[in-house]
Design a binder for these strands. Sequence first.
DNA 1: TCTTTAAATTGACTTCTCTTAATGTTATCA
DNA 2: TGATAACATTAAGAGAAGTCAATTTAAAGA
Lengths: 255, 255
Amino acid sequence: MALNTANSTPDDGDTSSHGHDPQSCEACEVRACGMCSSLSNGELDKLRRITRTREYKAGDQIFCDEEPLQNYAAIKQGIVKLSKILPDGRQQTLGLGFPPDFIGRTYGEENVCFASAVTDVTVCTFPKELFNDYLMRTPALEHKLFQLTLNELDTARDWMVMLGRMTALERTATMLLKFSTKRHLGVMDPPPIDGTVRFELPLTRSEISDFLGLTIETVSRQFTQLRHLGLIKIDQQRYIDILDYQGLMAVSGQE
Amino acid sequence: MALNTANSTPDDGDTSSHGHDPQSCEACEVRACGMCSSLSNGELDKLRRITRTREYKAGDQIFCDEEPLQNYAAIKQGIVKLSKILPDGRQQTLGLGFPPDFIGRTYGEENVCFASAVTDVTVCTFPKELFNDYLMRTPALEHKLFQLTLNELDTARDWMVMLGRMTALERTATMLLKFSTKRHLGVMDPPPIDGTVRFELPLTRSEISDFLGLTIETVSRQFTQLRHLGLIKIDQQRYIDILDYQGLMAVSGQE
DNA sequence: TCTTTAAATTGACTTCTCTTAATGTTATCA
DNA sequence: TGATAACATTAAGAGAAGTCAATTTAAAGA
């Protein structure tokens, strides 16, 4: 069930679970760092009245390209993938959303991309018109959303360099470095001077290839090469150990 | 002379001409459509006090990656190129700025890319700190800048699809289609049903290749192929006639 | 007008990534 | 535990774009 489809019920075949008021914004994992951090408790109370919580299973579509934008959402838990699909089926991932990212094209008439759940996802949703009204009356929230959008633009432009100018090996190394420091809640760890870093890759090889503008097979070959170079170790195809952080930086083409 | 370098004088070897108060915002070409369109005449008057006009010759660097951000700018005339350069010299263009675009990373500490003049360029510049203060006190302006940033994000994501998933021919056709409708002042003409469209390519082949993530030679070969397909005609290497708009759409991979 | 220089095109060849197909691995479920 | 299905890796060959070099075209200056 798409986020934008109104009046859905729990029994309409949707795998996502449905709206109820978020009872405790105070206990919300992203109260302190997301867009809500710009709001006083009083303001938050007003926003909560138009908010519904919704859950999606890994793989679910959250909203769809070119359907009318009906709801915005803020990610509470899980990872969301934004992507575009060309008419012949070629797909390009535009970015990943982590808590507390905001999704939906602010002030837009329709969605300009697909959003789908990479892992199980929990979001707060806001009806477009009501949220727009609220946003117009709350400059502090607009300021916060502006900041989030600026960060997204920075990220998009970094990926443009990767997609336009980097080799398959450099793209793969760059992605691993980004994932190694990207933690939940958007907090970035400082890169380690040495020693190993271990993390779980949340994406399948297919999702990685859509992200890097490559094929599954090419991604796999780059992983193999990074292993043979002694830079990484892979367990169960999903757990990555970065054995040589500086070495990985060196092949990533960034330094 | 970079936009960010303070205290420059007209005789310091800079090819750009230097600051004076813009005497007549009323007569400004972009008064009605740029960020200033969000301001009343009174508010505009306050902004004008911290504004300097500056001119750059084609090819001049306007600001530089990773130098401290000292000034923002609004484009009054000409075309500005934003790009990133990898340590080994590979370059990727991130986007083009036309009047009345705003350049400089809002709320940023340093520039995250290079900006250079593609054609002769005239900008209004604003010292960062003073502009930030003004921005904080002027929600209407922040709202406008937010909208401009959202548009930039949409554009960046469109290019990501192109860079990640399109062939050289598709990229070249896509670029020509974009340029054929992109006019000065950011106004988009409706695409013609049929008949030819003529426009001047403002970029050299080298600049085009940096834009499309290709080499000069590959761009040239795609132009040749589009000519052989009867879709375009090129005069003096710079003037493009689109002979078959629908045909160009078809090879662009978008429809 | 002629010369010089820079930019663009073309051709031959190389390299990198994709395609196709087979094999291997992991997780799920009977 | 074994069978099945989904996911991942590997290999060989094809195709697309890059590299290097030569030629052509356009623009600028003498």
